[in-house]
Design a binder for these strands. Structure first.
Length: 860
RNA sequence: GCCCGUGUGGCGGAAUGGUAGACGCUACAGACUUAAAAUCUGUUGUCCUUUCGGGCGUGGGGGUUCGAGUCCCUCCACGGGCACCA
């Protein structure tokens, strides 16, 4: 039977894709398999904020996750691959303000829309475990967790200076302030004193830091970022006695340089500075002058170093010498003790300050090489001018100086962290209520577990600024559970990052109806997450909080894991070209066309258009594409294939309409191949795994070997998560089959085996077409339920190769040889090449290099 | 300033120290077609050469090696993170 492959009816993706999505949904094909005899694999993509519509970035993120989940399933793992919604948060309230819709309604409506979109992408989720963090059941349990953490002393309330976002009217955590601006609103953050709830993340600073070293399944970049954020520094607290009798405590990581100290500097916020300003008008006006213009963090950083001599001196601990005390603007109050001793010779900031105020600079560390150092010098070296420290290395001197200071009773070893406790209060409605009562008599009263949940009132109004919970007429008025007198509910809600700090534990619950949401047996079965996938923008915020929360919950006995994510994969952003009109407005790519001379113009008017660089797709830059539109034009399979083609998944992905069309063409090329195969007798019954290899024709033998090599390459690439290579190898195999169509169509058993495994390997990426042809060709069950193909190493061994021949390291030709051919024969053949002879040009061969199966090189 | 990361055709990117450019996009050509589209088959780093073949090529410079995109030193460019953290 023969069939012209070009005549085959085009693939009707929209019917096929809908058909299988319906089938998977109705048959619950991807319900989690709770089989203890199988190795488990928890595949999780960072869950979605229901902002309204799915964008291409989501598609890429979830496609990568889905490929891994489906691949693991085919490899015999019990896979947990859940889906959910990070549903509390400000945008819901902003939408409420803007168009008068209730945040709850807005959120659940968005979830519904986006769920439909997600389903149209054919992901292998266990939908039975789906939940949203704004579901009453979820946040009720979160309140229980809050109370447990409170009991454990991991939550406390403190009045402190906080980051206040004037647009969102809300407090932000340090992690949520980026370049002095709110991470969401972009408003310049102000400082404000407020009573706030804090989580004691600093209790875990050491563990959070040291465990990073064991997270070898994480990108190095993210590990470094977390280390820097935690910012551990080891050093010494030193007490100096001042001329007015008071003691000043400073922190230093370089106590070895104490003999080079020439002054002390204290922060303008230091208690001593504050005290002096009350009696000394010069100091007072100095402190006032530096306050001006110091509202934003950015400005502070660029400020010139200035200070004022207090007239006070302190005694040097080892020398009979007085050091002046300055108030200096570059000393921060909220790090260390707010006071430092300054060694200008070995610290850049001290050097700058000392130069400006003509303070002495004494070098006490000499670098190991003999070049004179350019000061300030902060590198390693040998101590000098330092009495008992002379001749020691920096490390030795650090220890010895600290020991000595301790002995004298004025020193103390000390570790400081940059990491601050996590402020979790938010003055907003759409979040998890904090289960606390404020009573005038009894103070802070945590609710009893039996009084949970505290549900959000639905009848709220957003017409006043500030927190709607606070203006609600009745909600906050309660009686104190202890003394029964009138009391007030806490009206702050929890930061949404709390919601996302334990959702993965909730996904573990094998019985989601169970009130005991943190079921330790289920958690033990599934945690940690074997593969977590998400954007690198969460490197610090979410990933650090989630690590901390997991540890805190373990501490409270909820779980047995201390690290939530074993392997982390951070995918790149989807980027697209940007276009701007003459007057600087962004333009949609659809408004622009390329002209013959390679420039771009507006389709409507022909006006010239500036092409910007490729940037992350965003609505504001108008360089977005709509997944729904693409799915209806090219199909989900083509889209899924495209977003993992060409570019390694960890890198930014350049969108191109041509590339997408190429993927669509490939899906059709596959379809034609499958239909052709069916017409030529390919079917389930013809698949025999024992092939009479020796009696195959040369062409078929070659194809059969390529097929084994393909399985090997594709499998290894998938293990490496190099989806772009997976696609390349699949295309290579398909190209080879196409080239051998005439030969292979007469051998339906080999053809069947190759087609069967091609479908299996395609299935994780483009599952719909795979499922369809699997069904058409009569294979058993679903392709996703079938095991991953295996390759036989013996067919991947190369027997004959095209051996490159070099002369002096330059390629001069190749010879076809059998891999086991004798060395002397190979040399003979190589030397017989005219090109090799020309290159040797009668010179003497000084050396012959032969690497079996690799190369020959003649050195002349 | 400090710490990471990345530099390969017109573009996205392949390449255990061993034939640089797999696979794709773009472009061009041929076949099919009345024609176009689609499809199938080629070509596509660059320069010299009718051919055979040869020169130059992985950001720049140096080094190790029979042999370097890959290893070492150094410089440059771009991207990201942190940034008076004592």
């Amino acid at each position: 039977m023969s069939l012209d492959i070009s005549e085959i009816t085009p693939y009707n993706f929209s019917v096929v894709e809908k058909k299988w999505q319906k089938f998977w949904r109705e048959k619950k094909s991807f319900k989690t398999c709770i089989d203890a005899s199988k190795p488990k694999c928890f595949v999780l993509e960072m869950f979605m904020y229901p902002s309204g519509k799915v964008h291409i970035g989501h598609v890429r993120n979830y496609t990568i996750g889905d490929i891994i989940a489906r691949y693991k399933l085919a490899n015999g793992f019990a896979v947990l691959h859940p889906v959910g919604w990070d549903a509390f948060g400000l945008p819901a309230e902003n939408a409420a303000l803007k168009n008068g819709r209730h945040p709850k309604e807005w959120t659940y409506q968005n979830i519904q829309t986006m769920k439909k979109q997600i389903e149209s992408l054919g992901f292998s989720y266990d939908w039975e475990r789906e939940f949203a963090t704004c579901d009453e059941k979820y946040y009720a349990y979160q309140q229980k967790i809050f109370l447990e953490l409170y009991k454990k002393g991991l939550i406390y309330r403190k009045k402190s200076e906080v980051n206040w976002d004037p647009i969102d009217q809300c407090v932000l955590a340090n992690e949520q302030v980026i370049d002095g601006k709110g991470w969401r609103s972009g408003a310049i953050v102000e400082k404000k004193m407020l009573s706030q709830w804090f989580l004691k993340i600093t209790d875990f600073a050491d563990e959070l830091l040291s465990e990073i070293n064991h997270l070898d399944g994480w990108p190095e970049k993210v590990r470094t970022m977390q280390k820097n954020w935690i910012g551990k520094s080891e050093g010494c607290l030193i007490t100096f006695k001042s001329s007015i009798g008071e003691y000043i405590e400073v922190f230093s990581t370089r106590p070895d340089t104490i003999f080079g100290a020439t002054f002390l500097a204290i922060s303008p916020g230091h208690p001593l500075a504050q005290k002096l300003s009350k009696t000394n008008s010069t100091i007072k006006s100095f402190l006032e002058s530096i306050k001006i213009g110091s509202t934003s963090t950015e400005q502070i950083e660029k400020q010139e170093k200035i200070g004022i001599d207090t007239g006070i001196t302190v005694d040097h601990p080892f020398l009979n010498k007085k050091l002046p005390v300055f108030i200096a603007n570059f000393v921060l109050m909220d790090y260390g003790t707010g006071a430092i001793f300054s060694t200008p010779a070995h610290d850049e900031r001290d050097y700058e300050f000392a130069t400006k105020y003509n303070l002495p600079i004494i070098q006490v560390v000499k670098s190991n090489d003999n070049f004179p150092e350019k000061l300030p010098y902060s590198g390693d070296g040998i101590l000098e001018n330092s009495e008992f420290l002379n001749g020691l290395s920096v490390t030795e001197a650090k220890n010895k100086s600290i020991d000595k200071l301790c002995e004298m009773g004025i020193g103390q070893r000390k570790v400081f962290f940059k990491l601050r406790d996590w402020g979790i209060s938010r003055q907003r409605y759409w979040g998890c209520p904090i289960p606390i009562i404020h009573c005038e008599k009894c103070g802070i009263v945590p609710l009893h577990e039996n009084n949970l949940p505290i549900l959000l009132p639905e009848d709220v109004s957003f017409d006043k600024t500030g927190n709607p919970l606070d203006h609600h007429p009745t909600w906050k008025h309660v009686n104190c559970p202890i003394c029964n007198s009138e009391a007030l509910r806490e009206t702050d809600t929890l930061d949404t990052f709390v919601d996302s700090s334990w959702y993965f534990l909730r996904f573990c619950a094998n019985n989601p109806e169970n009130i005991e949401l943190l079921d330790s047996k289920s958690i033990k079965q599934w945690m940690p997450v074997d593969q977590y996938i998400g954007g690198v923008e969460h490197a610090i915020l979410h990933l650090l909080y989630a690590r901390f929360f997991t540890k805190a919950l373990a501490e409270c006995g909820f779980t047995n894991v201390r690290e939530p994510f074993k392997n982390l994969f951070t995918q790149g952003m989807v980027c697209n070209n940007t276009y701007k009109s003459k007057n600087g407005d962004w333009l949609f790519p659809s408004q622009v066309r390329k002209t013959e001379d390679g420039t771009y113009e507006l389709i409507d008017t022909g006006e010239k258009v500036t092409v910007g660089r490729s940037e992350k797709m965003s609505k504001s830059k108008k360089n977005v594409v709509d997944p729904d539109e693409i799915i209806s034009t090219y199909g989900t399979d083509a889209l899924r294939l495209f977003v993992v083609s060409d570019t390694p998944p960890e890198r930014d992905f350049p969108w191109s309409d041509e590339g997408l069309e190429g993927s669509w063409r490939f899906i059709n090329r596959l379809w034609r191949l499958f239909v052709f195969a069916q017409a030529n007798g390919v079917c389930s019954e013809k698949c025999k795994d024992v092939i009479d290899y020796e009696n195959l024709s040369d062409n078929i033998q070659q194809l059969y070997k390529i097929y084994h090599v393909s399985i090997k390459n594709i499998t290894l690439a998938l293990e490496d998560r190099a989806m772009n290579k997976v696609v390349a190898y699949i295309r290579e195999l398909v190209n080879c089959i196409y080239m051998n169509l005439e030969n292979i169509q007469n051998n339906s058993s080999v053809f069947s085996v190759i087609i069967r495994d091609l479908i299996k390997m395609l299935a994780p990426i483009s599952p719909h077409i795979s499922e369809e042809v699997w069904n058409i060709l009569g294979f058993n069950g679903l392709v996703s339920e079938n095991p991953w193909p295996k390759y036989d190493e013996k067919y991947t061994i190369v027997e004959t190769i095209n051996l490159p021949i070099q002369v002096n390291g330059k390629l001069r030709g190749t010879i076809d040889i059998c891999i086991d051919e004798k060395e002397e024969n190979i040399f003979e053949k190589a030397l017989a090449l005219q090109t090799v002879q020309n290159a040797i040009a009668n010179r003497v061969i000084r050396k012959k290099v032969f690497v079996k199966g690799k190369i020959i090189n003649f050195v002349v």
